[in-house]
Amino acid sequence: MRVTVRLFARLRELVGAGDLVLEVDADATVADVWATLVAAHPAAEAYARSMSCAVNLEYARMTTAVSAGDEVAFLPPVSGGEARRGA
């Protein structure tokens, strides 16, 4: 089945696309989608431990099951709001 993957910020730049369609097995989880992404774009591996994920605009876990047509987003650590602490 096919799912849509959304990537943002530096992860988007590493992969070279913010929006792609991946083919995964019918019983796939978010972890399988991630593994498929990393196999095609090894640079994404840099975010394996720091990214979070969302499925169809809900925060999800790597164990969350996905369905055909789902939108799976992988999110680098966020930095909204005002300037962070620092010099």
């Binding site: 943002f8 910020a9 530096r10 730049e13 720091s50 990214m51 979070s52 969302a54 925060y59 987003a73 999110l75 680098p76 650590p77 966020v78 930095s79 909204g80 709001g81 005002e82 962070r84």
Partner: peptide
């Protein structure tokens, strides 16, 4: 403002004198 920095999927791309860098804070998990 503390929660925004934790869970809102927004990213800051800093352009500074001599380069650019993505600022990364918290791994977002609501």
């Amino acid at each position: 403002i503390e929660r925004i920095k934790q869970i809102v999927p927004i990213w800051k791309h800093e352009h500074f004198e001599g380069g650019e860098v993505w600022i990364e804070g918290a791994t977002a998990d609501a």
